[in-house]
Nucleic acid binder design. Structure first.
Lengths: 268, 268
DNA sequence: GTTTGACTCTCCCCTAACGGGAGGCCGCAA
DNA sequence: TTGCGGCCTCCCGTTAGGGGAGAGTCAAAC
């Protein structure tokens, strides 16, 4: 019989952990002195502890270990652990990509103006108007015009809250002149198509998102950053880019306060 | 200005998380209504939140993020994160090896009698006696003899608590006859060498440990298991094997209760 | 004017697997 | 008798919020 301190050294497990295992019923001592409360362990417990430690080293939770050591023979928990480990491996790998990319740019002296977030954009109903525009100035003038026309034709249509107003860019690479864009505005219910616009459903996508602050002539740098990020982090661009308008001329006087979100659909 | 619900949808962050970020001072709303307590966020906060989410997706803790967004420009936290990620990657990889090894054996119908634990054995002072023995029976008779001789010659020498009594096996592969073994017993202080024994220091080692229950003729299977485990888990054997005696003929009548620990020193 | 339903607030308890420490008991050695 | 090391229980702390209770707020609908 060992005292808890000796037993803890034998099994390379802390005294605190042993008391915890006792408390939750995972590993009770062979004997507990009824008067002093002292725990006494035998080598039978050492054998059990060895198994517990082995399972802990595989990363099982205590609850899972309790299930495994009691109802042995079922591999489902182990298979679940395998699946969990595989996703953990992907997560760590993704994070490594990001951190290394960040450090590389920092080392090159780049000031990290842009940060990339991967997010899910749910599917949504929009009215849209696809047009060729000469530049961003022309585009900006079109948005309220389209909105006004739709509102006039479809008085029952209301915009989503919070708003989601974006361009879907149909050009195959970034350009800021003669662009093939589709102005979209998310609405709560579809309406009837009209002159120069229609209602459609934008698909749900996973995007790499970059926020750009300032006037639109800086969007090129943001795009370049986003595309580089997507490639060096092991993703591929998988769909038409979107530019979501958050702040702009309609609510901010100073161009420096304009806020636009680039959304590049991606897959691994 | 957005209410917390809208803002939470814009940033794809839960309301709970936003309130938490406010509470700990990481991201305060632009305005809080003094009477209702309602939080109102502006797009400036959206920009900050985007950065926070990007850093979270790199796996930084909230505390680290607070440090990064306040005192920007220092890469030490990012380098620390890189180091942490690299060890996490190794941990996950190790666990994957173990779980896959386990599942493979299970699928082959093997009953998992042995579990492997990787543990550190600290350096310790021992008296030792290296001998050629014909078999385990002969070895068993030698241990008490050596112990008695040392105790007689060195009355001030006392054994460690808990005990650590082991064979260091100098054979290059497992054999149960004509073995070249070194009987060792950990003591608290070194003594004077004597006839057929000496005092020495066993090095600290990292070992793969397997517990074997039962008589010594089953040790071969335990060795085979341990060696297979070491190889399929990407380790190499790096030193002389040890057999640590926990329970045996000296305290258990039934051979089935004997307990022996195989310790194979390993490196990655 | 009232009601309703969605939204928000604060406050409190919960997580996993122990670690740290306080305050007190037990047994042994000087 | 005193000290010391080991052990006990009890309580609080850790992360990054999640869940829910109970109450207040807001805007639209009736």
């Amino acid at each position: 019989m060992y005292q808890i301190g000796e037993f803890s050294k034998l099994g390379r497990v802390s005294v605190k952990a042993l008391r915890y295992y006792d408390e939750i019923g995972l590993l009770a001592p062979a004997e507990v002195d009824q008067w002093t409360g002292y725990r006494y362990y035998s080598t039978e417990q050492l054998y059990q502890l060895h198994e517990i430690v082995a399972l802990r080293q595989m990363g099982f939770s205590i609850e899972q270990i309790a299930a495994i050591v009691s109802g042995a023979g079922d591999t489902s928990l182990v298979e679940a652990r395998l699946a969990t480990l595989e996703t953990e491996q992907r997560t760590v790998s993704d994070q490594l990509f990001r951190v290394r990319h960040y450090l590389r740019l920092k080392k090159e002296g780049y000031e990290m103006e842009y940060k990339v977030v991967v997010k899910e954009i749910p599917s949504c109903t929009v009215f849209s108007s696809r047009q060729k525009v000469a530049d961003y100035t022309e585009m900006l003038s079109l948005i309220p015009a389209v909105g006004a026309k739709v509102a006039a034709d479809n008085p029952q249509v209301s915009c989503c809250v919070p708003e989601y107003c974006c361009n879907v860019c149909h050009d195959t690479e970034y350009q800021d002149t003669n662009m093939d864009i589709e102005i979209c505005q998310a609405v709560t219910t579809p309406g009837e198509p009209g002159d120069g616009y229609e209602f459609k459903t934008l698909p749900a996508v996973t995007v790499a998102s970059v926020l750009h602050r300032g006037p639109y002539d800086g969007l090129g740098a943001a795009y370049a950053f986003a595309i580089d990020w997507v490639q060096t982090n092991g993703y591929q661009v998988a769909g038409d880019w979107r530019e979501a308008f958050i702040d702009g001329i309609w609510n901010k006087d100073s161009e420096a306060e304009w806020l636009t979100e680039l959304q590049l659909p991606i897959t691994k």
